[in-house]
Computed example of a mutant assay.
Amino acid sequence: MERKKVTVKGVDKDAWEMLKQLREIEQRFVGAILSDCIRDYWEDGFADCE
């Protein structure tokens, strides 16, 4: 899987704190957690649009 460095702007403080907690609990990189979130979001709302 190709990885790419990106900057994410506009993340609210509460969401950022939740992400930091997830990272500590799961011992995963932020990018891996965000990738999972994006895939789940896509499957829940946009997968049928293809």
Rank of each mutant, 00 (worst) to 15 (best):
M1D: 11
M1Q: 11
E2C: 09
R3S: 11
R3F: 09
R3W: 09
R3A: 07
R3Q: 07
K4T: 08
K4Y: 13
K4G: 04
K4V: 13
K4A: 06
K4R: 13
K5H: 06
K5N: 12
K5G: 03
V6T: 06
T7V: 15
T7H: 05
T7D: 06
V8R: 11
V8F: 13
V8E: 07
V8M: 13
V8K: 05
K9Y: 12
K9Q: 11
K9G: 05
K9D: 08
G10P: 04
V11G: 00
V11A: 00
D12T: 09
D12A: 02
D12I: 03
D12C: 04
D14N: 06
D14V: 07
D14R: 06
D14M: 03
D14G: 08
A15C: 12
A15G: 02
A15P: 01
A15K: 08
A15V: 04
A15R: 10
W16I: 05
W16P: 00
W16Y: 13
W16C: 03
E17F: 00
E17Q: 05
E17P: 02
M18I: 04
M18Q: 13
K20S: 04
K20P: 01
Q21M: 08
L22K: 15
L22M: 13
R23F: 00
R23K: 15
R23C: 00
R23V: 01
R23L: 01
E24N: 11
E24D: 10
E24V: 05
I25N: 15
I25E: 15
E26I: 04
E26P: 02
E26A: 05
Q27M: 08
Q27G: 13
Q27I: 03
R28L: 11
R28W: 02
F29C: 10
F29D: 10
F29H: 10
F29P: 14
F29Y: 14
F29E: 10
V30D: 03
V30M: 14
V30C: 01
V30E: 04
G31I: 12
G31F: 03
A32W: 00
A32L: 08
I33D: 00
I33R: 00
I33F: 01
L34K: 01
L34P: 02
S35N: 09
S35Y: 02
S35H: 04
S35W: 00
S35T: 13
S35M: 06
D36L: 04
D36I: 02
C37W: 13
C37K: 15
C37M: 15
I38E: 00
I38V: 15
I38M: 06
I38Y: 02
R39G: 02
R39C: 02
D40F: 08
D40G: 04
D40R: 11
D40C: 03
Y41D: 10
Y41P: 02
W42E: 10
E43W: 06
E43G: 01
E43Y: 10
E43A: 11
E43V: 11
D44W: 07
D44V: 08
D44F: 07
D44M: 14
G45C: 05
F46Q: 12
F46I: 08
A47Y: 08
A47L: 09
A47P: 01
D48M: 09
D48R: 14
D48F: 12
C49P: 03
C49G: 06
E50C: 09
E50A: 10
E50N: 10
E50D: 15
